[in-house]
Design a protein around this nucleic acid. Sequence first.
DNA 1: GCAAGAACTGAACTCTAGTTCAATTATTCT
DNA 2: AGAATAATTGAACTAGAGTTCAGTTCTTGC
Lengths: 210, 210
Amino acid sequence: MAYRETPRMRARKEATRQRILDITQQLVASGGFGAASVARVAEESGVAIGSVYRHFDSKSDLFAEVFRHATEVEVNRVGEALNTSAPADKALAEALEVFARRAIRSPTMAWALIAEPVGPLVDEERLRYRQAYAELFEQTLIRGMREGCFRPDQNSKLSSAATVGAIAEALVGPLSPAADGLDRDSAEQLIHDVVRLCLQAVRAPGGQQQ
Amino acid sequence: MAYRETPRMRARKEATRQRILDITQQLVASGGFGAASVARVAEESGVAIGSVYRHFDSKSDLFAEVFRHATEVEVNRVGEALNTSAPADKALAEALEVFARRAIRSPTMAWALIAEPVGPLVDEERLRYRQAYAELFEQTLIRGMREGCFRPDQNSKLSSAATVGAIAEALVGPLSPAADGLDRDSAEQLIHDVVRLCLQAVRAPGGQQQ
DNA sequence: GCAAGAACTGAACTCTAGTTCAATTATTCT
DNA sequence: AGAATAATTGAACTAGAGTTCAGTTCTTGC
């Protein structure tokens, strides 16, 4: 016998794998999944095309992993914002602001995660992602409905889905193609307006207005 | 000389052209633009692939024309609903209901018109389409802000964009993949809920609740 | 240094879908 | 009927992107 896998080699392989993941995420962030061809990923990662396939079974697998990681980060941030003892409407406002701020900062990534058609494997991950959001928002919506700050006769699943859609369309849709070209003040104004709009949509009739 | 274009031939050509447009629209309605390959369009239209290219310069041109026609119909329906002397909030509710009902009846077409990535030519048309909606909704939003039924300190462009996004996500997004499989009652409930949500989002604080 | 095995390479292969065009068929007018 | 022209056809061409794999290079243990 001669060759054996050593810690050094394992670390090197792991580093290459991670580099491919990072490069792919960068490409997705700047141009969506459509901009991340295997050839481009390989070139920018400094490896041959074939090497990508030693680390990932297929482009779909690579995409699914990038998607999973990117969405985990997003969902965690929103989850942190919701995990508070503040009133439900304050918590939701904070979470929506986090969501909106991150979307406006990386509109292409937001679009890639929310809406870009990619393929079955990513669609599966996207379903999980949406469900994760839906569950987070829904939890707080339901809490607010109990606490009295949110309208009690609403469909919480519908409300959370519509909220995500409203933010996505307002911030990363074609009406705001220059979203990442906004100056800081306009961006803050936009975030403020859209969060207020979303909150008002679910708020109880008699509740306080901000 | 011998051959000259006769009215009969012109009519036949026009009929074929129209048939291709109709078939393409049907294909888009059932599977999005992605399902409308030139080969499929040709086959279902009963012509050869090459013939499609005598009637349209390219697939993109064909798609742009189908898109233009389909969106004209949609925008006109919404425009009719808004063109009323009723209070602005009633007018908007009616228009949103029309929009939502049509979207839920043809979710794939709605998705194709609102969000499906197709190509630059269709994107151009889509921009016009969204602007047409934005202008329609905005007109009524502004009227309502004057009349006092809508919150006066809102960004009307943002509100109309967010409204379209909310409906799209709630009715045709992945959370409702079975939208066209809903029974009539569930569909009506969904439409009712989403319209109420959207209206409440833009309504003035003191305004009447439905 | 050397043999065994793994990692790496990238040109070639495959697959899909839009487009073209030489050959065929159809229509019109004399 | 026949000539002129247009319409139609669909196999072949093209282009782009994912995938493969035989050959090369690198790593390891003796």
